[in-house]
Amino acid sequence: MSVHDDLTSVQRCLDDLVRSVGRLEQQLGADGLEMRRVRTDADHLRESVALLREAAPDLVEPIRPDLVTIPDTPYDNSLWTDSDDEGLGARDRHAP
């Protein structure tokens, strides 16, 4: 996996965590010290992943495939002398 794929996976997991923490807050209330600590920790994780995403382009250069130029000139017809016309069969044979 690339760094970008790993960061995307971490972001998805973090989004799931934040949603779960929100549901817990609704069930348990947001007033308790423990719930506030969990919410703060989740927020810190979110900020840290955002910082990693910003730094990721500097960590790894994206791998770009080599470009292949295709000429606009027609192909040499002698390349196709030994092939059959697709779907039509060979010139010297009949369809059944």
Rank of each mutant, 00 (worst) to 15 (best):
D16G: 10
L33S: 02
H94V: 04
G22F: 01
R93E: 11
L67R: 15
L59D: 09
T73P: 00
A50H: 13
E54S: 07
R91I: 04
D72M: 08
R23K: 15
A56M: 08
T40K: 03
H44K: 12
E25N: 09
P96S: 04
R36G: 10
S20F: 05
V49T: 02
E61T: 14
H44R: 15
E34R: 14
P96V: 04
G29H: 06
P74H: 12
R19E: 15
T8I: 13
P71E: 05
L33A: 12
E86D: 05
Q26R: 15
G29E: 03
H44I: 09
A42L: 02
D66Q: 14
P71L: 06
D6W: 10
V38P: 01
D92V: 06
A56L: 05
E34D: 15
S2N: 15
L33E: 02
L59M: 12
A56V: 09
D84A: 08
E54L: 10
V68G: 04
Y75G: 07
P65V: 09
S9G: 05
L33I: 02
V68P: 01
L67F: 05
V10F: 11
A50T: 11
G22E: 13
E54M: 10
R93M: 04
D41L: 13
R46D: 02
P96Y: 04
T73S: 13
S9F: 11
E54N: 09
R64I: 01
P62H: 04
S20A: 14
P74Y: 05
D43K: 09
D31G: 15
A90Y: 02
R37I: 05
R19P: 01
G32D: 12
L17Y: 14
S83V: 12
R39D: 01
P96E: 06
D66K: 14
G29D: 04
R53H: 13
R19D: 15
A50L: 07
E61V: 08
L79G: 04
V68S: 09
D84W: 08
R37K: 14
I70G: 03
R91M: 06
G89E: 06
Q26W: 09
P96K: 05
